[in-house]
Design a protein around this nucleic acid. Structure first.
Lengths: 258, 258
DNA sequence: TGGGGTGTTCTGCATAGGCGAACGTCTGGC
DNA sequence: GCCAGACGTTCGCCTATGCAGAACACCCCA
């Protein structure tokens, strides 16, 4: 809404793993602004601690995001509620477990717990993001959105094929999401990466909105044998987390009628 | 510089461990603004993903912070360079090791590595902050600042006594910092917390500026016996990290004369 | 069923901030 | 070693932006 904040956000978006350091002119060119405008935004973000000015007058992300992240991590109800449940899953079944949310069209890992088996799925750092259309987590999270928004998202960021199994057509994605809504869970059978399979289930808050998703990530050979079992376990875990967030299917089923 | 960004930063500052959720009126009251102004900032921050709107129309930190933090963590040269050195320290000596920076007057932990000994110092989450005047890390970081800034900081946030050993007078702090600059390291002998001691040394970048500090945290009974040894080890580690950041004492000693 | 507390919307006025041009500085290549 | 080009920074004008206050809509509790 406020132009300046939107601009600041667009600037911060530029700082990525691929290009973590930017100069004033580069930012101005990348965003099509006057150099002095870019300079003002960069200066202000640096003064506020969100960016760090190198001695050469270039810019990197600043330490303040670390401070914010700490507050986020230690106060967010979702993490507090979910972590013990997820730890239990790893302890019992030894498979890699993920918790993720949808952030501006991308699946963002909030919590990752490395499996304990000899052959296991390696996890990425929290904050890393995935394509929503090609992952079980993503499909579950998209299933919480109205179809129009899914269409917009697909149009905006595309549906690239990551493996031969990836869904690349919008209508196919929409019908898959209808299935996910009906069943209450999603599979990813080597759609993101060969040899990798996932099952994910939605986490809902007290008003029934899908706020996150939990998943098992399992090597394909082990997954084929016990798909059903993994599905039931992850559904149960998602239900437990949702209930701890105040989700009450009965009360909300009643609301749906009204 | 830009008022709107400064305001946004002040709003984000409100979100803390003690009060991680704010409403529009609360923000307006806390900052002395009109309700509509607070509303505009909160809306914009939420639209940009920095805040998350709860179903009740209140606000919490948003997931985008997590995404930024990940980029920071994976691209910051300091962490990349320091982590292997610090891991070595823990492996060899088993004591808790910290890496910290100064962020708007507070000591912020960037990296923490838990010691492996039976009796060890428990670490806090990265992003947590400490009083600079009462910690070894803080004194090292302050030693990189001109005296005026230290005086301003002390005036602004005070020098509370955390233990009987804490420095609580500005002139005493300044003379301590002079010693730190001369010696090149700082001790904390139960100044922050009873039973806890630290040694810290400065990490410098290629232009010689103190950009961070590394420390050992050791129980007092073990520290008394081998203060000197810990000091030498941490000095060596700091030197190694600094050199990997491009610090070259000889080249800079030459510059000082000019 | 009302009242006080929310979050949200509207409109006009003043100022904050965007632009483009000029400045100072550094680097690298002839 | 010098000049040329690029960079980050500064300045001042003009316009658009975003601030304030009051009115609105909503929810929860008494």
């Amino acid at each position: 809404m406020l132009g300046t904040i939107d601009k600041a956000a667009r600037v911060l978006d530029l700082f990525s793993l691929e290009k973590p350091e930017w100069g004033v002119s580069e930012v101005a060119a990348a965003l099509g602004w006057a150099k002095s405008s870019a300079h003002a935004i960069l200066c202000s973000l640096a003064a506020a601690g969100f960016l760090h000015r190198t001695p050469q007058g270039r810019y990197r992300l600043g330490w303040r995001v670390l401070v914010l992240n700490r507050v986020l991590n230690e106060t967010t109800p979702l993490k507090k509620v979910a972590t013990p449940v997820l730890e239990n899953l790893v302890r019992h079944y030894g498979e890699t477990v993920h918790l993720a949310v949808l952030e501006r069209g991308r699946v963002v890992y909030v919590e990752k717990l490395q499996g304990t088996r000899a052959v296991r799925v390696e996890v990425t750092f929290p904050g890393a993001s995935l394509w929503p259309h090609a992952s079980a987590l993503g499909k579950v999270l998209l299933s919480g959105l109205p179809d129009e928004e899914v269409v917009d998202l697909a149009a905006y960021q595309g549906l690239p094929a990551l493996t031969p199994n990836t869904i690349t057509q919008v209508d196919e994605l929409l019908s898959e999401l209808r299935g996910v809504r009906r069943r209450g869970y999603a599979y990813d059978i080597e759609e993101y990466m060969p040899e990798l399979c996932c099952v994910a289930a939605p986490v809902r808050n007290h008003v029934g909105t899908v706020v996150a998703a939990v998943s098992f990530s399992v090597p394909v050979y082990r997954f084929r044998e016990s798909k059903e079992a993994y599905k039931n376990i992850i559904l149960e875990a998602a239900k437990r987390i949702s209930e701890n967030l105040g989700y009450d299917p009965k009360a909300l089923g009643f609301l749906k009628l009204a």
